[in-house]
Design a protein around this nucleic acid. Structure first.
Lengths: 333, 333
DNA sequence: GAATTTTTATAAAACGTTTGCAATTATCTT
DNA sequence: AAGATAATTGCAAACGTTTTATAAAAATTC
C-alpha cells in the first residue's frame, strides 16, 4: 500500500555509498573504514532509518525471533518461567512470539504450525506432555527446541528441569518423619510424565523405604486449579489421609482452603507440602511448606541453552537439572 | 545456509501451473478454476508445502503479527488481560510478539523499537503510563495502537478500560455507608493517570458528597507488590484509618496479611476493598471485597478493536469503557 | 462463426535486505 | 617506485512470496 518509509537504499544514496556498505555498518561488520562508517551513521541518524526486520529475515534466514509455547499464561508457575525466558531473550536480542497452547492438542499443533511458518530461529516448549503429533511437528525442520519445566520421555530435545523424583521423595520422607502413615498424593494429570513417572516414583520410593505399602487409593488425580483443590479435599479426608503432597500451588491453595473451611487445623490435624514455591505459598495462611524450584532460572537457563543451539555452539549438557530444596513454612509440623 | 525446504516454486512446477496460481490457491483467491485448485491442493499436500511467512510479510506488507507490551507477565492482572488478547488474536489468525516492558522507560522504548522493526500490523500497549518518548515512538509510522487497561490523557490511541472514577467512587461510598470516616487510599504510582487522576478523583468525590474533608495524609503511594502491601499497613494504621481502598490485588493481599499478622480483625476492626477481582481475592481469608473489572474482556475487546483498525474498518468508538461492579466478600461488613 | 466479454492463468516486477565475489583503493615491502 | 598484499567498497544475485499488467482460454452474444 502506502510506501513511505526510509530504506537502506535511501541511506546509501544520501551517503553516496552502496547498500552493501550501509548493511555492513548496520550489522557492525568490521570491514568498513572508520570515516565511512561515521558518514553512514550520520545519514542513518539524520534520516532516522530503521532496518526492516522482515526483509532481513528473508535475506539472512535468521529472524532473531523465538517461539514460546505456554499452556496457561495466567498460571503463575508458567508465567514465572516465561519471565526468565523473556529476560534472557532480550539480553540476546531475540523477540518472543508467545502462543498459548491450551484447549487440547489439536489447537497446540495448529498454533505450533503458525509459529514455525514465521521462521522462528528456535522454540521453547512448556506443557504437560508432548503428544506424538506435536513431536512430529517439532522434529520437522531443524529448528532447535528446548523444553522448560517439561519432560519428554523420549528425550529428543534440550530440557531444563529439577530432579522431580528426588524432590518428591524428600518431601514425602519429611511427612513420614513427622509421623504420617497415610499420605495422599494429590496431582495433576498422570499422563504428564512429570507426575505419572517422576513425582509418583519419588513418592513411592519414600514410602517403600519407610516400609509403608503403596496404596493407589491415596493417589488423587485432578487438574491444576484452585477449584479442583477445594473440590478434592473431601475425598482425601474421607480416605483417611493425615497429610498430602500436592503437585501444583494453585491446587494446593484450593486444597488448603477446602480443609480450613471444613474446620480442619493445619498443620496440627493435617500437613501439606506443595511443589512450586510461588508467591501463593506465602499469601495464604498458614503459609505453605513447599518444594522450591528455581522457576525464573529454569526459564532463563532454557533460553540460554536455546541461544547456544541457535548459534551451533558446542553443548556439554542437553538435559539440565537445576537444584531444588524444601522451604519449611507453617503447613507442616 | 542449508536450503532444503519446499517453496511455492516447487509446487508450481510439480502442478504445472505458475507460482501466481499457487499463491492464489493458498490465499483462497476465488479466481481459480475448481479443478486447478484441486490439483494444486493435492500437490501442496503431497509435498507438505508450508508458505514462508517472512517472504509473505515482505511481499504483502502484512505480517499477521501484533506486538503486545506488558509491564509484568507474572502479575495476574496483566496476565489476565493477555489471555483475552491472545484468544482473540488467534481467533483472527494473528501471532503475538510479547515483550515485557519493566525496568523503566529506556528499556520500554528499546523493546518497542525492536517490535516495530518486525513490522507488526498493530500494537497493544499495557502499562502504567505512556511516557513522552514512548508516545513518540508509537506515533511514528501508522501502526494502529490500542491501550488495554491503560489510559493516555492525550487520548491519541484506541483504548479499553472501565470507568475508574465511578468504580472507586462507589467503593468509597460503600465504606462510608458502613460507618467509616477515615478511609485510606492505598495506591500504586500516582503518576499513572488511572491512579493519580481517575481513581483519586472517584475517592475524593465520594468523600465530598459525604461531607468528609479530603486529607492527603490518608493517601499512601507505593508499588504493586505483596511486600509493599505488608509494609504499608503500619503507616495506614498509625494514621488512624478504619478502612482502605486498595488499587491492586497483590498489594491488597499483602496489606490484608499485614493487618492480620498484627492481630487486627477484618472486617470488624478494619474494612478493605480492592480493585481487580483476580483469583487472589478468593484465595485469602477473609476473602476480599473487590471492584470487579472484566479483565479477560478488556484484553479481548482491545484486540478486537485492533483488528478493526488493522482492517481499516469503520470504528464507532475509539475509547471503550466496559462495565464494572462491586463483588461483596468478607473484608467488608 | 466472428466478435465481445468474462474468467483463468502467466510472466515479471516488486518487497528491503544480506552476501559472495570482483573491483578498487590503500598500505607495505624492498 | 613498483609490485605485492591487505583492506575497503560495490555489484548483483539471492531470499520466497504477492501483485500488477497482460495474455490466453473459455463463455457468451449476435
Amino acid at each position: 500500500m502506502e510506501k513511505q518509509s526510509i530504506t537502506i537504499y535511501d541511506v546509501a544514496r544520501e551517503a553516496s555509498v552502496s547498500m552493501a556498505t550501509v548493511s555492513r555498518v548496520v550489522n557492525g561488520n568490521p570491514n568498513v573504514r572508520p570515516d565511512t562508517r561515521e558518514k553512514v551513521l550520520k545519514v542513518i541518524e539524520k534520516l532516522d532509518y530503521r532496518p526492516n526486520a522482515v526483509a532481513r529475515g528473508l535475506a539472512s534466514h535468521r529472524t532473531t525471533t523465538v517461539g514460546v509455547l505456554i499452556p496457561d499464561i495466567t498460571n503463575i508457575f508458567y508465567a514465572s518461567l516465561a519471565r526468565g525466558i523473556n529476560d534472557v531473550a532480550t539480553m540476546y536480542k531475540y523477540n518472543i512470539i508467545l502462543a498459548s497452547a491450551d484447549e487440547g492438542k489439536h489447537k497446540t499443533d495448529a498454533v505450533l504450525q503458525s509459529i514455525m511458518a514465521k521462521q522462528v530461529d528456535g522454540l521453547i516448549f512448556m506443557g504437560q506432555h508432548v503428544e506424538d503429533s506435536t513431536r512430529k511437528e517439532l522434529e520437522r525442520g531443524k529448528t532447535p527446541v528446548v523444553l522448560a519445566g517439561t519432560v519428554d520421555p523420549q528425550d529428543k530435545f534440550g530440557s531444563v528441569n529439577i530432579d522431580y523424583v528426588a524432590a518428591v521423595k524428600e518431601a514425602t520422607a519429611r511427612l513420614i518423619a513427622s509421623g504420617n502413615q497415610r499420605i495422599a498424593f494429590v496431582t495433576g494429570s498422570l499422563s504428564d510424565p512429570i507426575n505419572g513417572q517422576f513425582r509418583l516414583k519419588g513418592y513411592q520410593e519414600a514410602l517403600s523405604e519407610a516400609k509403608i505399602a503403596y496404596d493407589e487409593s491415596y493417589v488423587f488425580e485432578t487438574e491444576y486449579s484452585y477449584r479442583a483443590g477445594e473440590a478434592v479435599w473431601d475425598a482425601v479426608k474421607r480416605a483417611g489421609a493425615t497429610a498430602a503432597i500436592v503437585t501444583d500451588d494453585e491446587l494446593a491453595v484450593g486444597f488448603l482452603n477446602g480443609a480450613r473451611d471444613a474446620q480442619v487445623k493445619i498443620p496440627e490435624d493435617f500437613e501439606i507440602i506443595t511443589s512450586n514455591n510461588t508467591m501463593l505459598t506465602e499469601i495464604v495462611r498458614p503459609k505453605l511448606t513447599s518444594i522450591a524450584q528455581p522457576l525464573y532460572d529454569i526459564g532463563a537457563v532454557a533460553m540460554r541453552l536455546l541461544t547456544k543451539m541457535m548459534n551451533k555452539e558446542e553443548i556439554d549438557q542437553n538435559t539440565i537439572l537445576l537444584p531444588h530444596s524444601i522451604i519449611t513454612r507453617n503447613s507442616t509440623k
